[in-house]
Design a protein around this nucleic acid. Structure first.
Lengths: 209, 209
DNA sequence: CAAAGTACCTAACATATGTTAGTTAGGCAG
DNA sequence: CTGCCTAACTAACATATGTTAGGTACTTTG
């Protein structure tokens, strides 16, 4: 539980939102409206506090954004790693890749405002903030590269595909979903199956059927 | 040629940039820095004029952005349509799709600041501006849907792939390239080949080889 | 050559924004 | 009860930004 101490002001009793509360709201607003449209006053209003109060928890707006960005990658990174680790050790390559794709898409579309906010606003934040997020990103990318390389060495993937290129294409495709996905029209799981089908087998009609 | 009338101010003679010149520079800045970071004063400075002068050509900042967005789609739309139309009438489905992919990627990465600016900033602009760009977008999307449907009806593509879904996935994948592509590390054409290979045949090692 | 038009400039205004300084109030350890 | 910590609040400042009004200079047209 977050340590939310109750505070009485005047007659009504307010609940302290605290650092985590502010961060949650910031992540949601960033995901919904992008970086530039979300001012500290908007975040404060949504959190039920005043703009200046944010500076009790954070040193600057950039610090908030940086925290959101880092958390966003960490969530999807752990989701993906745990989903793959939880598989039986004799799982075939195709299933492993499908599992990783599904985990990434779930974090992005279902689970985390932080992950979706990261994907949405990374290209909009000032460069110092972007740079600060890079190490965390690289760690997640390395996780994918290890996974894909393992599958390729095991003979599951074609040997002539470039791992880095494939990873960029994969994550790029998954993340692009955020621009159009409507939870009322489909589920992350169904979509991840479609994606995996295309990536694994292609869309070309085969002669050998 | 653009109708650039020469203007003498003081001793040095300046070249009038005009509406098109301002638009070109705006597109480039939007592509490089995103929507929020590009002020009218930045555009003006890059164009060699003063901020207020922009209002001789445009009624508002939104009008500039809207013009950039529309032009961006129109360029890639015409590129793609013409590239496909230029093919011999007996061209096979695979080649047609490869051609369309290459045309889109060229417009995005090589040719047009307008197209890349559109992809980059569409998610950042105020909603009225986004809405104004929607008809142009829908026309381009319809072009893709027609193309893909034709290929599917001709038996080139699997019958169980949803055209809308495939189009979203395809364009999403291509556009995501903008986030990481480095022209010094690869060409749009080479990349379009890689993309097409994956989309057409998948990455799974086949048993029948 | 005068008039009209084009493409700019200067200066200012209102607003929004990130940020800071100083203040207030409840909870709790001594 | 006192004093400290936490978590807020109020008010203000400097800056950046979109925008407007009125003026200037060069070009083209009648």
């Amino acid at each position: 539980m977050t340590d939310t101490t109750a505070i009485k002001v005047g007659e009504t009793s307010r609940r302290a939102v605290g650092r985590d509360g502010v961060l949650d709201i910031a992540a949601r607003l960033f995901r919904e409206q992008g970086y530039g449209s979300v001012s500290l006053r908007k975040i404060a209003e949504a959190a039920g506090i005043k703009a200046g109060s944010i500076y009790y928890h954070f040193g600057s707006k950039d610090e908030i954004v940086a925290a959101v960005l880092d958390a966003g990658i960490q969530v999807v990174h752990e989701s993906m790693r745990e989903a793959v680790t939880a598989l039986p050790s004799d799982t075939d390559g195709e299933t492993i890749l499908r599992t990783a794709i599904r985990a990434h898409l779930r974090a992005l579309l279902d689970v985390s405002d932080y992950t979706s906010a990261n994907v949405r606003i990374f290209g909009q934040v000032p460069q110092p903030v972007r740079d600060a997020n890079l190490p965390t990103r690289r760690a997640y990318e390395a996780e994918w590269d290890r996974l894909l390389s393992r599958l390729q060495n095991d003979g599951a993937l074609k040997h002539d595909v470039d791992i880095r290129q494939l990873r960029l294409m994969l994550i790029g495709t998954l993340n692009a979903t955020l621009d159009w996905f409507d939870p009322n029209r489909g589920s992350a799981d169904a979509l991840s199956r479609t994606y995996a089908d295309v990536f694994l087998n292609g869309i070309l009609e085969r002669q050998d059927t």
